[in-house]
Amino acid sequence: MHERHLYALSRFFDGESVDPPLLLESLADPEAATYLTEWAALRAAVREDDSRPSDRFYASMAAVLTPPPVRRASWGRWIGPAVAASVVLVAGIAGFDAGRQFQRQHTQTAEPIRAVERAAQTRTPGAEQQTRRLTPPAPTAVPLVTPPQPQPTTRRPEDWPVADTRLRFESWRDTPRGGQEDRHERP
């Protein structure tokens, strides 16, 4: 039997959509009836199964499927923290009280402070003891300084320094055109 026909028959057997002309071709095959019958027998054999899980399975599943126990009322959740907080509070108060009592006992047993009967006087050997009265220093005299006034210049323009033009002239004469037409001596 052609594989294409078998595939179409398999889909038809499972109730899936099949191209009608192809199904007609497939069903016309002489072996089609044999295949369909055998597949039906196979399906029956697979589905003919009346096995069930054991009692042990149902016992274990009861624990899985039993809903969790109802939770305590909302205030019930606070009982634990409240008790813990109370214990901490009582312990803190007791510790504070014990500390105070301990401090009080230590305060009572300590020696009372006595009045000063004698004071030691020390003197550095060799150092002159300052006995005279200190006088403040005299004010410092500060001289007044004035900046010098600018003096008017007496230099005339004739006395100004003359720029050295020779160097510039010599430089011009060294150019390609320099000195060809316009050569002349510097006066």
Partner: peptide, 13 residues
């Protein structure tokens, strides 16, 4: 083994 005769009466599928 998959013939209908071999399986005996088969349930309706």
């Amino acid at each position: 083994r998959l013939s209908v005769d071999a399986l005996g009466p088969v349930r309706r599928v």
